[in-house]
Simulated scan of single mutants.
Amino acid sequence: MASLNNRDLMKELKSLEAQVLHFKDMIGTEGRTAADDIRERGSIAMRQASDRARNAASYARDEASSVASIAREHPTATSTALLTIGLIGGVIGYLLGQGHTPERDSRWRWN
């Protein structure tokens, strides 16, 4: 009777071992498939990002060329616009600087 139980137990262990190996193979296959899918998606995303960056750089280059040609054609208007922008920036900076006054410390008060 003990040998019968022992034989059944050994059969059960071998069956479980076969199932574990089968699951291990399935998980490995699924992992490789998922990794390939992720790698493919990453490659597509990088390609698209590269194309968009190239297009943005080309657009910026074209716009800079356009602005430079306008500045060459109208130097007086360009210098006036830059001077005006500088003055507006200076006034804003001055107003921001005046709006923030440091608190006085009573130790430094002159009587």
Rank of each mutant, 00 (worst) to 15 (best):
W110L: 05
E12W: 04
E30Q: 13
A34F: 04
M10E: 09
A71I: 01
M46P: 01
G97L: 06
Q48S: 04
T76V: 05
L95S: 11
A45S: 14
S50T: 07
N111M: 08
D36H: 14
S15Q: 11
G97S: 11
R104G: 00
S106R: 02
P75I: 00
N5E: 14
H100C: 13
R39D: 14
Q48T: 10
A81P: 00
R52Y: 06
G86Q: 05
P75Q: 00
A68N: 09
H74Y: 09
G42P: 00
A18M: 07
N55K: 08
R52E: 15
Q98C: 15
T80V: 15
D62M: 02
R32W: 04
L87M: 12
K11H: 10
M26F: 08
G86T: 02
L13H: 13
S43Q: 13
M1H: 05
S65D: 15
E12N: 07
K14C: 03
N6M: 05
R107P: 01
R72S: 15
T29V: 07
R47Q: 14
L83K: 06
G97R: 05
S58Y: 03
S58T: 13
I27P: 00
H100I: 13
L87W: 04
A49T: 08
R109N: 03
S15L: 10
V20F: 05
A81L: 12
S50P: 01
L96A: 06
R52W: 05
D105G: 08
E63M: 09
S106F: 02
T80Q: 15
R104W: 00
V67Q: 11
A71E: 00
N5I: 06
G90R: 12
A64I: 03
T78K: 01
A49C: 10
K14S: 15
K11Y: 09
P102V: 03
W110S: 03
G90V: 04
L96P: 01
L16A: 06
Q19G: 04
R107Y: 01
A45Q: 13
G86M: 02
V91M: 01
L82Q: 13
R104N: 00
L21Y: 06
Q98A: 13
S50R: 05
W108A: 02
Y59E: 14
H22G: 09
R61F: 05
E73C: 06
D25L: 06
R52C: 11
A53D: 15
D25I: 06
